[in-house]
Design a protein around this nucleic acid. Structure first.
Length: 324
DNA sequence: GATCAGTGCACAGGTCTATT
DNA sequence: AATAGACCTGTGCACTGATC
């Protein structure tokens, strides 16, 4: 397909000249001989050239054979591209997974190309690029889904969350008995959130506890908490017969939760008749210790002093030195 | 020398917006 | 519509100067 013009001192693509294609191979011409091999490879794989090559074959050879051959080449190239993309994606997921496994923040303060500290995720991608040629090529040449922007980081996190939740839901559907634990917490932006944990027996007969997620609440009344909880449970147990599986619900002892007639536990039990309410043992122990300690003056003073020590010694090298 | 209030900056995530 | 850079924001920490 390669042809040249002596007067223009440039190379052109004959099929693309006939049927139209990339400007550099049809109008301006290619005269960069240093990078000719790369340019040829790139042009040979572009869809426009492949289509034009098929058209150029009309009349000269058996069309059916040629179309069949082009089709096979197209499929092979497509599959190679898919394999390459999957490989790159797996490396990007590994980088996100690494940050999650070690509880590292993904982003940095300054994520521009020239930044010396673009964040742990970008640092990891750079590190992988330095030891993996395929990744290096992708990072340098990709125009779509480069994988370094925060949009992609967040999307990868969302995808990983979906996969994890799907895994938990599948295990929950295959088990016979399930218990839930829930509590409310307020995040740094003072938004009220509900935390849900599932406890069940997995396929190996082992008891497992899985943190399922946070749900933002409108307010902290029984109706809001119960609605959020039931919405989550409905995803896992959509069928009526499955609702028998939930045999326990464990929360703290706040009246809004434990209330016998209008509490969260009652609202859940109305839908899940086997879900018996159990006051969380950790909360109970905490309350007992708190009550016991507060009734004895010496113990109260001891704990008060104890909590003051870290504040007294922290951030003061001089005071800390006394302890050495 | 210790304490406190004010100030500025880094951090890390979110939002807006231009570009492809 | 997808993507990525620029900018925004609330928090915490370090530094500085005034005061006791």
């Amino acid at each position: 397909w390669l042809c040249g013009s002596a007067s223009r001192k440039s190379l052109f693509c004959f099929p693309c000249l006939l049927f139209g294609g990339e400007l550099s191979w049809t109008q301006t011409g290619v005269n960069d001989l240093k990078h000719l091999s790369e340019k040829i490879k790139k042009h040979e794989s572009c869809k426009c050239h492949l289509d034009n090559s098929k058209l150029a074959m009309f009349g000269s050879v058996n069309i059916i054979t040629q179309l069949d051959e082009s089709y096979r080449v197209g499929i092979r190239k497509h599959n190679e591209e898919v394999d390459k993309n999957r490989y790159i994606l797996s490396k990007l997921i590994d980088c996100v997974h690494f940050c999650g496994a070690f509880e590292l923040a993904l982003r940095g303060h300054n994520e521009t190309e020239s930044s010396l500290n673009p964040g742990v995720f970008r640092g990891l991608v750079d590190l992988v690029s330095s030891i993996d040629s395929a990744m290096e090529k992708h990072v340098k040449s990709a125009t779509v889904l480069k994988g370094t922007s925060k949009t992609i980081q967040n999307k990868l996190l969302d995808c990983m969350l979906d996969v994890t939740r799907h895994f938990i839901i599948q295990q929950l559907r295959n088990t016979e008995y399930v218990a839930i634990q829930a509590d409310d917490t307020t995040d740094v932006s003072t938004k009220c959130q509900s935390v849900l944990v599932y406890r069940y027996i997995d396929g190996n007969g082992k008891i497992v506890e899985r943190f399922y997620g946070f749900t933002q609440l409108k307010d902290s009344c029984a109706e809001s908490i119960a609605t959020a909880l039931l919405d989550q449970l409905n995803i896992v147990f959509p069928e009526h017969c499955e609702k028998q599986k939930l045999i326990a619900q464990s929360y703290n002892g706040a009246s809004v939760i434990r209330g016998e007639s209008g509490g969260v536990q009652r609202k859940v039990r109305d839908r899940y008749p086997n879900a018996h309410y159990v006051h969380c043992y950790a909360h109970q122990l905490n309350l007992i210790m708190e009550q016991a300690a507060s009734k004895i003056m010496q113990v109260r003073i001891f704990f008060c002093d104890l909590s003051g020590f870290p504040a007294f010694f922290s951030r003061s090298p001089k005071r800390t030195q006394v302890l050495e």
